[in-house]
Amino acid sequence: MARWCVRRRFLVIGLWLAALLGLGAAQSSTGTAYNDNFTIPGSESTTAFALLEQACSCPR
């Protein structure tokens, strides 16, 4: 494989550049509207988080 890459170095560089441009285009087309809020009502962690919010009187 290394020999093939050395013999076709410009093709390999072109393929890497095309892959990078393709990944960049795919990343920009997905946008930035990600949501990481996930709750399960009644679970222990949700209850613990609610207790922590009640106990903390610190302004955010």
Rank of each mutant, 00 (worst) to 15 (best):
R60T: 05
C56P: 04
G24V: 02
R8W: 06
P41W: 08
S28F: 10
V6N: 15
T32S: 11
G42C: 09
A55Y: 01
F49A: 10
G31W: 04
A50I: 02
P59E: 09
L51I: 00
S43V: 04
R3N: 01
F38Y: 15
F10M: 13
T32W: 10
L20N: 04
L51M: 03
A19D: 10
W16G: 04
C58K: 07
S43K: 05
V6A: 13
T46M: 09
A48P: 00
L20S: 09
G24S: 12
A2H: 10
G22F: 11
L51Y: 01
A18P: 01
G22R: 06
I40D: 01
R9F: 07
Q54K: 11
F10C: 03
S29W: 09
S57G: 15
A48G: 00
T30V: 15
T32N: 15
G14L: 04
A33H: 04
T46G: 03
V6S: 13
G31F: 00
A55P: 00
R60P: 05
V12G: 02
T30I: 09
R9E: 07
P59D: 12
A50F: 05
L11C: 03
W16K: 08
V12P: 00
T46V: 10
R60N: 14
F49M: 11
I13V: 15
N35S: 11
C56M: 01
F49I: 14
W4Q: 12
W16V: 14
P41T: 01
S28H: 08
L23F: 06
S57P: 00
S45Q: 15
Q27T: 14
F10Y: 12
L17N: 13
Y34V: 10
N37Q: 12
R9H: 12
C56V: 03
V6F: 07
M1R: 12
L17S: 12
F49W: 13
A55D: 03
Q27I: 02
Q54D: 03
F38C: 14
E44I: 01
A19V: 05
G31L: 03
A55S: 04
F10L: 12
S29P: 01
R7S: 15
V6W: 15
L20K: 00
L21Q: 02
L52W: 05
A2S: 12
F10S: 13
G14D: 03
C58I: 12
W4H: 10
A48M: 11
A26H: 09
W4V: 11
M1L: 07
N37Y: 05
A33Q: 13
R60K: 11
P59T: 11
R7C: 11
Q27N: 06
E53V: 05
G24L: 05
R8Y: 13
L52T: 05
L11F: 08
G42S: 06
A18T: 11
A26Y: 14
P59L: 10
F38Q: 11
T46H: 08
N35D: 15
L17P: 05
